[in-house]
Structures are given as C-alpha cells and as structure tokens.
Write a protein that binds this DNA or RNA. Structure first.
Length: 468
RNA sequence: CGGGGCGUAGCGCAGCUUGGUUAGCGCGCCUGGUUUGGGACCAGGAGGUCCCGGGUUCGAAUCCCGGCGCCCCGACCA
C-alpha cells in the first residue's frame, strides 16, 4: 500500500474523517453554517442506501408520499414534549412575500405533526388501518455544532409514519421496521453490526413512549445511532385527533409510530469501515464495485479494459473504467480513498500473458487472473469481501465491548469502546454520573442481547459509551 | 452560550512583532513536451477588493477601534 495522503486515524480521528470526506469527494460545507453540499460520489452512495432501504420499506406495505416543508408553528405546540424537545433547534420563517407572517412557519425538523393532521383527515374507520406512510425528504435542525453527514443543519432522510388500531399492532410494526428494514439493511448491505435496543427515557424521541435504536461502533470506539424506530403511543393521536370508528361503532384513538434513517449513515459508513487509505465501501452498497484501471494509456491496454469491463457488466457488476491520463499511482490512490471494493489493474506486462491483477480494497490482497476469469472471480470475491467486512466489524465491536460491574469501570471502558452493565446499576442517577465524563446510555437490552418491549422489564443490561 | 484559533489566489499557508516601491510559497489549474506497474517531470502561463467599515500616517496586509464570518473543543442532537 502506498503511503497515505490522509491524516492517519491514530493521529487525529476527526481530522482523518474530514480528509476522507474532502479527498474522497463526498461533500463540501455549504455557504450557510452547517449546510452540506453532497458531491456526486457521496450522492451515489446515498442513492444506493435509499434504493436498498426503499425496497425494504415497500416490502412492509408502507407507501411513499410527500408532505410540505413548511409547518405552522402552532402544530408543534399541540404536543407538549414534542415542542419542548424541538424548540431549541427549529428554524422559523417569520417573513415572506415582503411581509411579517401572522403565524410563524417552521421549517420541518420532522413531520409527525403535519402528517398527524392529515392522518386525522384520512382515517375514519378501522378499515383504514393500519395507515402506513413513508416520505423521503430534507429536514432542518439548527444544531449547535455541525459536522458533515453526522450532524448538518439540513439533512436528508426517510421518515415513516404509521397509525394503528392497537398498541400491539403499533409495537409490532415499529419492531418489524427496526429489524426487517433497518437491521437487515445494516447487516446485509452496510456490513454494520449494531447493538439493537431501546433508549432510556432520557434519550427518547420527544413525544415517544419508546424509541428503538441500532447503535454502531465507529473505529475510534464511539457510538453512532444508525437508525431509530419510535412508538408514539397515543400522544400524537390525541394531539391531532387521530380517531377511528371501531367495528363496534366506538370512536377510538389510534396508536402511531415513526421511524427514520438519514444521511448520517454515510458518516457512519466512513467511520465504521474506513482505514488510513480512505473509505472502504461494502460491495453490496458500493455504487462502483469494481474499477478497471489501465496502467498505461495504450490501445491494446484500453481494449482489454473495455473487454474486462463488459464481462463484469454482463455479470451485473457495477463497474467503472479508468483509462484517463495521469499517473497510475495517482489513480490507484484516488480509487482507494473512494473505497471501491475491487480494483482490476490492466497493464502491458501482464497482458502479454493474458493476465490482469485484481486487488481487494479491504485487505490489499492481490491475485493475478486470466482475462476471461475476472468476471466470475470478481463476483465471488465481492461476496467474500462483504462477508469479511461484516465479520471484521463484528469482531471489533465484540472486542471493544467490556462487561463491567459499576459506573467507574464503565467510564473507563468508554475511553476506548463500549461498556455493558446491569441497568439496575445505573438508572437516572447513574446517567447523571456518566454524563460528567460525556458517557451516555446508548441502549437497554435483555441479557441475551434482544430488544426489550419497554424499560420496565426486569433484568435489563445497558450499553454505555461516548457517542457522536 | 463557555473556552481556544483563524480570515491574504480554487485549497493550504508565509509575511504582520519592528508600516515602505511590483504581496510571496506549496498544491491545484491552463499550454506544450516527455511520461504512466503505487500520489511523475521539465518549460512557460493564468489567477489577489490581503473579511468589512472607520481611524492613525507622507504611506497600512502590517498599528488602533468597531463589526461580520468561519473552524476546533464542550453543553444540545438523526
């Protein structure tokens, strides 16, 4: 491997992250503080995430729709906890059309309120339930300290909103989303192992009765919430009059849920799999799975590149040819920073014998292959990389998670990774103690690692760490 | 909001302490040529309201006053 052009992770992890975002041509800071310009390569990764998530969301029966960016301020005030939680970070429009508005308009930070308003209109009968909606949109939260992808003032996400006839149905659906959409995507596409659990009351979504989370561990040992699924109970139904008439003819309040995954996952991808040479994108996610690089810009070499690329494309591999001018080393480094899983090097020396060199991004391992065996081999190599990346991340997560007995030990463990301890050892008082050292309870789990129904279950354990 | 730092070419910076004629350097960019098996080299070239406003001075990137913006570290958070 070449000497890196990035700040090494061990030297300064945040700096390394910024280097990858910049030199991998992922994103730039926008002109307004906290805003983000997503560059074509960064966008292509987000598009892949969207496509994979969207397919899974539709599989659950949810339908896509779109609600407005602007929401009347009064909507937020209808749910006490919701307005309290979001007020500090709202962007509010007070003037439009050259005049001061009679009622300020909020630029949505999330859409429970407007969507609740329309659910109330659309739901009449138990036959209208469940109502399963999802939207892809931008939202705005005026964060105090923005970071590209991880915490931008405006970010992109999908937010699902559903209404159900019973608590059980709402709980089952929110759980289904968490496991069959989010966790399935995280494990099988993003190669991201996480701790699945529920948030303690202090970390719950504003207005929810329960928040499920998937907590991933970044390479610096800090946690990142990759996706969440909330049970809203009847809080929003009550605030927005979401009633249905039951089979027995009674007016009943709905139970609602909401769930979201955002462009933050792109930041998670970078910090979960990246190394000192840049990003490492798991093959099933990668917008470019194989890059075919011409070592020299010569006709025979370029022809061979075209042939190899065509055979890969025929095997449904997402492939890119690079026979641009410029030095070979430069182009290799650039593709490494972008994290393309496999690189095929086509040069005159190997080509005389009908061979090319194939290099794995994750391990750097090289194999020499005959031209016509590249496509079948690449397909299996990509699957191998996908599995190895997930197993590797799983091993790192397990290794950096320490079972501890008390809060001081948990704080110590959180210096380098996660700590797991009995929830009964922590509680609200313990959370305050942890917070002094910037450590938080990331989630509560049952002892076997499964998700509890709620935080009143006995014998729960908690995962604590520093986080993004 | 607290603590630190910074605004000079597209990016990264030097120059400012001790004011002085044409404001430099690296990378990038353009042209031509040689190159290309791990960030190539040579030659030529383009590119600047020195953050903004005021002041001091014969003269301000440099000194003084005021403003604005950005970045990093914390508290808030997908």
């Amino acid at each position: 491997m070449a000497q890196s052009v990035l700040t090494p992770q061990s030297e300064d992890f945040p700096r390394w992250y910024q280097d990858v975002v910049a030199k991998g041509e992922m994103a730039d800071n926008g002109p307004v503080r906290g805003t983000m310009v997503i560059r074509p390569y960064g966008w292509s990764i987000w598009e892949r995430m969207q496509a994979e998530l969207d397919a899974r969301i539709k599989e659950t029966g949810a339908q896509n729709a779109y609600f407005p960016l602007f929401i009347p301020l009064s909507y937020f005030q209808r749910e006490a906890e919701h307005v309290e939680g979001f007020s500090p970070e709202l962007a509010v429009v007070t003037h439009a059309g050259g005049e001061e508005l009679a009622e300020p308009i909020v630029v949505r930070p999330t859409s429970e309120t407007v969507i609740g308003e329309f659910m109330a209109k659309w739901i009449q009968s138990y036959r209208d339930l469940p109502l399963l909606l999802n939207q892809w949109s931008n939202v705005v939260r005026w964060e105090l300290r923005p970071r590209l992808f991880l915490r931008s003032s405006e970010f992109l996400w999908q937010e699902g909103h559903t209404a159900h006839a019973s608590y059980e149905d709402a709980n089952a659906f929110a759980t289904k989303i968490h496991l069959e959409v989010y966790n399935d995507f995280l494990e099988n596409v993003l190669a991201a192992p996480t701790y699945l659990g529920i948030k303690p009351a202090s970390e719950r979504f504003a207005g929810a009765i329960n928040s499920m989370t998937a907590e991933g561990m970044m390479r610096d040992g800090k946690a990142l919430q990759m996706a969440t699924s909330h049970e809203l109970g009847q809080n929003f139904a009550r605030a927005f009059d979401i009633y249905y008439q039951s089979e027995a003819g009674q007016a009943e309040l709905c139970y609602t849920s909401s769930w979201g995954a955002s462009t933050r996952m792109v930041g998670g991808l970078i910090m979960l799999h990246g190394d000192d040479n840049g990003l490492v994108v798991p093959p099933r996610l990668a917008p470019i799975q194989v890059v075919v690089i011409a070592v020299r810009d010569e006709p025979e070499v370029n022809d061979a590149c075209d042939r190899v690329a065509a055979s890969l494309k025929a095997a449904d591999v997402r492939v890119r040819i690079d026979h641009g001018r410029g030095s070979f080393g430069r182009r290799v480094t650039d593709w490494e920073i972008k994290g393309v899983p496999l690189r095929v090097e086509v040069g005159p020396r190997d080509l005389k014998e009908g061979l090319v060199t194939v290099v794995r991004r994750d391990t750097g391992a090289k194999v020499t292959l005959a031209l016509d065996s590249v496509a079948p081999t690449a397909a299996s190599l990509l699957e191998e990389i996908q599995v190895d990346m997930f197993e590797g991340a799983k091993a790192r997560l397990a290794e950096a998670t320490h079972d501890v007995a008390n809060i001081p030990e948990a704080i110590e463990a959180a210096e380098t990774g996660f700590a797991r301890l009995d929830w009964s050892q922590v509680g609200e008082a313990g959370e305050a103690e942890l917070k002094v050292d910037a450590v938080t309870v990331r989630c509560l789990q049952r002892r076997d690692g499964s998700m509890p129904l709620n935080d009143t279950e006995d014998d729960l354990v908690c995962i604590v760490s520093k986080s993004y």
